[in-house]
Amino acid sequence: MDMLQLDINQCPDKYYVPNAFKDTHKCHRKNSYCVPILGRGFEIGSYKCECLQGYEYPFEDPITYFDGQLVEAEFSNIVNDKPTR
């Protein structure tokens, strides 16, 4: 089996599921929640951060969530002391 074809789920799960990547998302936990995006394969950032009730996406876009790959890239920039958005 090709490991690159497997999806990574970084979102939390209410029940015990053997998953080494569980709850490793970078969504802001106070105002958003993680939703897995299937079909991206074995890559980090295969999730989206959707706003909790009472919060709203700050930009006027047709997309109303933060893409996990963008969140992971910005986090990497912060860690490596590079400019961020």
Rank of each mutant, 00 (worst) to 15 (best):
S46C: 05
Y16M: 00
K26V: 00
C27Y: 04
V35Y: 07
N31Q: 12
R29Y: 02
A20F: 08
S46W: 03
H28Q: 15
L38D: 13
S46A: 11
S32H: 05
C51D: 05
Y33L: 02
E43M: 13
C27S: 07
N19D: 02
K26F: 01
S32I: 07
D23F: 02
I44W: 08
T24N: 05
G39T: 08
C27P: 06
P36F: 07
E43R: 11
Q53G: 13
G41I: 11
C51G: 06
G39Q: 07
L52M: 10
C49W: 09
C27D: 11
C34K: 02
H25E: 02
G41D: 10
K30S: 14
Y47K: 01
C27T: 10
E43K: 13
G41T: 12
P18V: 05
Y15N: 11
Y47I: 07
Y47F: 12
P36T: 10
Y16N: 04
K30L: 13
Y33W: 11
P18S: 07
K22F: 00
H28I: 14
Y16C: 02
G54R: 15
C34S: 06
C51Q: 09
Q53N: 14
H25A: 01
L52S: 08
N31S: 14
T24V: 03
I44K: 06
G54T: 14
G39L: 05
T24W: 01
Y16P: 00
Q53T: 14
K30D: 13
L38G: 09
K30I: 12
Y16G: 04
G41F: 12
K48S: 10
G45A: 04
K26S: 01
C34A: 04
P36R: 02
I44F: 12
K48I: 13
D23Y: 00
E50L: 12
P18N: 05
V17N: 03
Y47G: 03
C27F: 01
K22C: 06
S46V: 04
E43V: 15
Y33E: 05
V35M: 08
C27N: 10
T24D: 00
Q53F: 14
P36V: 08
P18H: 06
C34G: 02
Q53R: 15
K48C: 01
T24M: 02
Y33H: 11
D23E: 09
V35Q: 12
D13Y: 03
D13E: 13
Y33T: 04
G41H: 12
G54S: 13
S32D: 05
N19K: 02
S32T: 15
E43H: 15
A20K: 08
H25N: 01
